[in-house]
């Protein structure tokens, strides 16, 4: 059987298509859109990074991990520690080592460092967590999220506690965020098509048969756990540089819930589902947020009651689970145009 040349670039049809689609929206947004729309779209790009982080582990291993936002928290604070104005660090974060206090890295270096730090934490934590069976692993990741949140909320001299950290430099443009979103998608794609990704997906479908096939399920899961944490760490840093301000509760239950809704709505087993889920849920959430703010008509203000946003998203997720349990994409990828498809199939 002839196996055509397998150049990485030619095989990367799917992420190329997804990235091109995102770029096609980002370009007019960066040129013409009012600030509100640009913020909305930047937030979508950040969420794509974070949901991709979730996806790399959940989508390929089949183990539902609820705690990945903790890695975004680790990454966000790493970014703040490395890039905040040194003057403020010396006043607010007296517990930081002196060399960190005097450091002021660019956001680019900050994102890289955040990814590395989250990956290291994941290597230690994951070594224990991914040994557990599916449900136990899910609960353990959730416990990990709570532990991280408590530590970061109370370690005042290092994290500033629940007080917001300010004077964090911003990217100043939508394009760096777009670039990191593209990088996250490409990373996820290359992983799922790699030897390790394929072995992990096999264990997702049947872990007993995977063991009998000679696959070390533990090692594959740990690899995916660390890689996904790195993406989450980078996402947390990008989020921090986008906001320019950091509070610990940004990376907690609310964000976890939103990310999981996006993953489930889009379809947890395809990369296309990640992008579709983020855009669909963000749009619905944005409309609801505007409705909660209400509109002024004459002298009266029409507004929906607060909290309706979460309720509606919850109902939205339940409806998707009932009628399309594998998400709006049904776990499938975008159909590729013919000129790309021939190459992708010939992997």
């Amino acid at each position: 059987m002839a196996v055509p040349a397998n150049l990485p670039l030619r095989a990367a049809g799917l992420p190329a298509l997804l990235i091109a689609g995102l770029g096609l929206v980002t370009l007019p947004v960066s040129l013409f859109a009012p600030p509100g729309v640009e913020t909305f779209w930047t937030e979508i790009l950040v969420r794509i990074i974070l949901v991709t982080g979730f996806y790399i582990f959940i989508g390929n291993s089949g183990v539902f991990a609820f705690g990945h936002v903790a890695f975004a928290c680790v990454g966000g604070y790493a970014a703040a520690w490395l890039s905040m104005n040194p003057m403020f660090k010396q006043i607010m974060l007296t517990g930081l080592p002196h060399w960190v206090q005097t450091l002021q890295l660019s956001p680019w270096a900050g994102v890289a460092a955040a990814a590395v730090m989250a990956a290291l934490v994941a290597l230690v934590v994951g070594a224990a967590i991914v040994r557990l069976s599916d449900i136990a692993a899910s609960i353990a990741t959730f416990a990990f999220l709570v532990v991280v949140n408590r530590i970061y909320s109370n370690w005042d001299s290092v994290t500033g506690g629940v007080a917001p950290l300010t004077n964090i430099p911003q990217f100043g443009s939508i394009w760096p965020t777009f670039l990191f979103a593209a990088l996250a998608l490409l990373t996820a794609y290359l992983f799922q098509r790699s030897r390790w990704g394929l072995m992990l997906k096999a264990s997702r479908d049947d872990d007993v048969a995977a063991l009998a096939t000679g696959i070390s399920v533990y090692r594959m899961r740990l690899a995916a756990f660390v890689l996904s944490a790195a993406v989450m760490g980078a996402g947390g840093a990008v989020y921090t540089y986008f906001l320019g301000i950091l509070t610990v509760d940004v990376f907690y239950m609310g964000l976890t819930f939103l990310m999981l809704v996006m993953l489930v709505v889009g379809g947890a087993e395809s990369l296309t589902g990640v992008v579709a889920g983020v855009i669909a849920v963000s749009t619905v959430a944005q409309i609801l947020r505007l409705a909660e703010q209400g509109v002024q008509i004459g002298g009266t203000r029409l507004a929906l009651p607060l909290g309706l946003q979460e309720i509606t998203l919850g109902i939205f997720m339940v409806l998707v689970l009932v009628y399309r349990s594998d998400g709006i994409t049904r776990g499938r990828e975008l159909p590729l145009p013919r000129f790309l498809k021939a190459n992708a199939d010939a992997r």
């Binding site: 997906k201 096999a202 997702r204 479908d205 995977a210 696959i215």
Partner: peptide, 13 residues
């Protein structure tokens, strides 16, 4: 079997 993988991928893995 690895139910969601293709026939080829089952043997390939």
């Amino acid at each position: 079997l690895f139910g969601k993988l293709s026939v080829l991928e089952n043997a390939q893995v």
